[in-house]
């Protein structure tokens, strides 16, 4: 008997005669996106010691430039599909220092970059989480992983109230990365310290 058949037959023997347990239907009623969703999201992101700004659409480009200047970033990755207005802000500020990922950058090239500027797929207000799905504005997963600085732009309309709404909005066929603050560890005396292998600085610009 193959191990597959063996395991399946062991499972069937183990649960034979056990009472059925129904699969629960959907739980708590989905929360409505309220007035305060943007403020809640910004506050919760900040709780992870990420840097957060909430700006009007007309201020987005300026916020990008200011952030890159503060960071003194010289080489920044710009994924394909980043809205032209945002990509232009990076190029205007850095010139040749704004690098695309086409053809794909090597791991070493990514490691040599100062940072990356992306959009996102979904923001979750309750937990201050950003979800990336490798779609347009975001690029492949390594882009937001290897460079030490991640500047992420979130449009207010992308923010959902809680985790259930986010799960419903996302496509599991795409590789997803849920990001809640900068890389951190609690492995030393269970104290949270920011900054291990992922980007040590996460800066979020919420565009109303």
């Amino acid at each position: 008997m193959s191990s597959r058949d063996l395991i399946l037959s062991r499972v069937r023997a183990a649960v034979a005669g056990a009472p059925d347990v129904p699969h629960t239907g959907p739980r708590a009623a989905p929360a409505a996106a309220g007035e305060r969703t943007v403020e809640l999201f910004a506050g919760r992101v900040a709780d992870y010691r990420a840097v957060v700004h909430v700006v009007e659409p007309a201020e987005a480009a300026g916020a990008i430039t200011a952030a890159l200047a503060r960071r003194a970033a010289e080489r920044v990755v710009v994924p394909g599909g980043l809205p032209e207005e945002w990509a232009h802000a990076v190029r205007a500020h850095l010139g040749d220092g704004a690098v695309g990922d086409d053809p794909p950058l090597s791991a070493a090239e990514l490691d040599a970059a100062c940072g990356v500027v992306t959009g996102c797929a979904v923001g979750i207000a309750e937990t201050g989480t950003i979800v990336l799905d490798t779609g347009p504005r975001q690029g492949r997963r390594a882009l937001t992983l290897v460079p030490d600085y991640h500047l992420c732009l979130v449009r207010a309309g992308q923010i959902v109230p809680g985790v259930p709404e986010a799960v419903a909005a996302l496509d599991p066929a795409r590789p997803l990365t849920w990001i809640s603050g900068p890389s951190a560890t609690s492995d030393i005396e269970l104290d949270r310290v920011e900054g291990v292998h992922g980007p040590r600085t996460l800066e979020v610009v919420v565009v109303r």
Binding site: I124, E126, T127, G128, P175, T177, I179, S180, A184, G198
Partner: peptide, 11 residues
């Protein structure tokens, strides 16, 4: 934590 820093899903 409300959420751990990183969750990855892949198919």
């Amino acid at each position: 934590e409300r959420m751990n820093p990183y969750t990855s899903t892949w198919t």
